[in-house]
Write a protein that binds this DNA or RNA. Structure first.
Length: 273
DNA sequence: TTTTTTTCCTGACAGC
DNA sequence: TGCTGTCAGGAAAAAA
């Protein structure tokens, strides 16, 4: 389940392999992955385009081509593989045939991923797929005061705010648990009860944890076949998610459901507000 | 308006 | 072995 650090790792890897490479053909086996244009339009507009830039907004990958931006969301299990030949597999839904002789294949077991194609615009926030996406967690405008302003009047719990991409984009289920732990806060805490100081801590820990995870190539929880660039090592440094005992106080880690998400916390280290 | 629930998908796994 | 049922999860859509 790629979150910002995994997405960044995939992008960095792809940049070294397909920068300045052009698309010769696009094979589409499962059209529903393509969200905003018709299959034929998607295919025709992409043929002849060259990959130039590799950017990220939250969990979205943004491939800058000559005339278009190709936006991809991997959701839970989307992956890119590069092959030297055309591979058939029931989980490969889209293949980009490249002029470098390689086939960039989009693999997605649960078919939840989505792709969007837009004629290039100066302001990427103008793309409809980003209408509910706020600032990236790394954006300098994201600070404690910003987070406090966003959440202090909400009746929801802290975890749902961390997962809300319109507030701060890039955090997913695994890192949300880690952020709560590092901030000493129970994920069920009411957002409206968080102080400005709590919010400072939350934003600080978010940036620290996600940047740290990015340096380790992200987190690989369930080891499927190692996908391109996402066999991270950060799972070795997780403090609560998927753990049974707290690494700090040795108390048993509790697993429960918060905002319909599997959630791990240390009842001893994390205070509920 | 805001919050919660359902939907999309398939593989893994539990229980019979 | 083979069947049925449940679960996981990001985000959009639907319902409350």
């Amino acid at each position: 389940m790629p979150e910002a650090p995994e997405v960044q790792t995939v992008l960095s890897t792809l940049e070294t392999q397909i920068k300045n490479v052009s698309i010769e053909d696009v094979l589409i086996y499962y059209p529903k992955i393509i969200d905003n244009v018709e299959v034929e339009t998607f295919k025709n507009q992409l043929i002849g385009q060259t990959f130039h830039s590799f950017n990220r907004l939250g969990k979205y990958l943004i491939f800058g081509l000559d005339d278009y931006d190709l936006v991809v969301h991997l959701r839970m299990e989307g992956k890119f593989y590069l092959y030297n030949m055309l591979c058939e597999n029931k989980h490969i839904h889209i293949v980009f045939k490249l002029n470098s002789g390689t086939y960039m294949s989009y693999h997605d077991t649960r078919k939840f991923g989505r792709m969007y194609l837009y004629p290039k615009k100066e302001d990427i926030h103008a793309y409809p797929c980003f209408k509910n996406v706020g600032y990236d967690y790394m954006d300098e405008r994201v600070n404690g005061m910003y987070f406090y302003t966003c959440v202090h009047s909400l009746k929801r719990n802290l975890k749902s705010c961390l997962l809300d991409q319109s507030i701060m984009a890039g955090v997913g289920n695994i890192y949300a648990d880690e952020i709560c732990f590092a901030s000493g806060l129970d994920p069920r805490s009411r957002a409206s009860k968080l102080s400005k100081k709590d919010c400072e801590k939350i934003v600080f820990q978010t940036k620290r944890i996600l940047q740290g995870a990015t340096r380790f190539g992200g987190t690989t929880i369930r080891s499927y076949t190692s996908s391109l660039g996402v066999t991270g090592r950060f799972q070795l440094y997780l403090n609560v998610h998927d753990q049974t005992q707290c690494k700090v106080c040795h108390h048993a880690i509790k697993k429960l459901t918060v905002s319909q998400r599997g959630t791990y916390l240390c009842p001893n280290c994390q205070k509920r507000k």
